[in-house]
Amino acid sequence: MAELFESVNWALIAPLIVIQLILQVVALIDWFRIERTNGPKIMWLFIILLLNMIGPILYFVIGRRQE
């Protein structure tokens, strides 16, 4: 695994991590502001925080209540 870490050019991977972070932060901001979500609100916090990449997307697609 250590070899893999060294062989990876991090400049290439950085954009992925940045995008993932932006998605997560935006989802969190929205999570704080929104009143109710589909399903328990606290559940969505864990989904956003724990599931990489997919978590925030799931939140935006399914979790946000269409008023």
Binding site: P15, L16, I19, Q20, I22, L23, V26, A27, D30, M53, P56, I57, F60, R64
Partner: peptide
Amino acid sequence: NFKWIWVPLVFILLGL
């Protein structure tokens, strides 16, 4: 709805 943020980002992720 933040659609203008997350939809482009998702497409960029898919493209990368």
